[in-house]
């Protein structure tokens, strides 16, 4: 149970970063922390105590394996996360070139 709680706290740390930080890069970092807490949650739900890696070879004695599907999902999600993060950072670099600042309080040309 405690791991799930820690995982949730990690999510909250990321959320805190997104909500309170004023720096564009720090917001991106906060978002990635949240993302990785979700990945950790996926790894946890597939885990079984004393389970082996689900590779079936001949003469294997144990019949207890961890669930491989969440691991496959996490791999896919990490690749998607890479795409979103690089997209965010590319926009952040462009923002810096246009506004000469990373402060979101000064990036405010859209209103209403």
């Amino acid at each position: 149970m405690i791991v799930y709680l820690l995982c949730f706290i990690l999510f909250l740390v990321g959320l805190f970063g997104v909500l309170t930080k004023r720096n564009v890069i720090k917001i991106v970092i906060g978002l990635s922390i949240m993302e990785f807490s979700i990945f950790l949650f996926f790894a946890l739900i597939g885990y079984i105590d004393e389970g082996l890696a689900p590779i079936i070879v001949q003469n294997i004695s144990s019949t207890k394996f961890v669930d491989p599907l969440p691991q496959a999902m996490v791999l896919t999600a990490i690749v998607i996360g890479l795409a979103t993060n690089s997209m965010l950072l590319a926009i952040a670099i462009r923002l810096y070139k246009k506004y000469n600042t990373f402060d979101i309080r000064k990036i405010n040309s859209l209103k209403g």
Binding site: V18, E35, I91, R94, S109
Partner: peptide, 20 residues
């Protein structure tokens, strides 16, 4: 331009949160 980048950044942060 300035507006497009700002809008896209907002959209990405909220859209990323939604995806999570």
């Amino acid at each position: 331009e300035k507006e497009e980048l700002e809008a896209s950044f907002k959209y990405q942060v909220l859209g990323g949160l939604a995806s999570l």
